[in-house]
């Protein structure tokens, strides 16, 4: 398991691995928002939590289509399925590697980009907390989508269509935590909902992903 995690991290850092692509995308999207909305700092402060969450979500989506597709193309997935690792473990590790290379950098970069969007001061802590709790769910749901579309030519677009609706609850509660935090309101309820969604998704979806993958490998 550790070997697989280390290999995936190494692969993402090597040429063409796509490390930092999501981060760069996040940076560009959030920089474009002030240009399109205009220099209205009050308006930007209002929409900042939502924009940051939406940007993070789209950035997560960007690298999902390579998550399992590359291993499928070069035959590694067949070999991993016949290896002593349980397939549930393989997809969990894949999701973890995706989170470390995509989700974690987004969490760390979000406060810096919050400055660009004039995010109110109390919001920074809540933004980071909501992203830390929410982005693992994005990676795990995304891995499920990748397992569904593995082996399909041009599966990337279908993957986005399948995965984006599943991201809705995480987006609603994640952005709500950040919004309420920025407005200085009480955040316990959306925070609990967000944590609940993430916990349930991390606990249950790997089984679904592994089942789907077994069917797709036939």
């Amino acid at each position: 398991m550790i070997a697989l995690l280390l290999r995936d991290l190494k692969l993402s850092l090597r040429a063409g691995g796509g490390f930092g692509l999501g981060l760069a995308f996040f940076l560009i999207v959030t920089t474009l928002v002030p240009f399109s909305v205009g220099p209205q700092s009050a308006l930007l402060a209002t929409i900042a939590p939502g924009v940051l969450w939406l940007g993070a979500l789209l950035a997560c989506l960007l690298s999902l289509d390579r998550l399992l597709a590359l291993d499928w193309e070069d035959g590694s997935l067949d070999l991993l399925a016949t290896a002593p690792l349980p397939l549930e473990g393989v997809v969990s590790i894949k999701a973890l590697a995706h989170w470390i290379t995509t989700g974690l950098p987004l969490v760390l970069a979000a406060p810096v980009l919050g400055v660009l969007l004039n995010l109110p001061a109390p919001g920074y802590g809540w933004l980071v907390v909501s992203l830390i709790l929410g982005t693992p769910a994005l990676s795990v749901i995304g891995t499920f989508g990748a397992a569904l579309t593995v082996g399909l030519k041009r599966g990337g677009l279908l993957l986005s269509l399948l995965v984006l609706p599943l991201y809705v609850p995480t987006l609603i509660f994640g952005a709500e935590v950040a919004r309420r935090g920025a407005a200085g309101m009480e955040t316990a309820t959306p925070l609990l909902m967000l944590s609940g969604i993430s916990a349930a998704v991390i606990a249950l979806l790997p089984f679904a992903s592994a089942t789907v993958l077994r069917i797709n490998l036939r």
Binding site: A3, L11, D74, D78, P84
Partner: peptide
């Protein structure tokens, strides 16, 4: 099992590819 594809990662070295499978098994 060894199928038509070798499951080799082009950006890893020969030793890294082989070590990975040795550790998995």
């Amino acid at each position: 099992y060894a199928g038509h594809s070798d499951g080799i990662k082009p950006t890893l070295t020969v030793a890294e590819n082989l070590t990975f499978w040795a550790r998995v098994f």
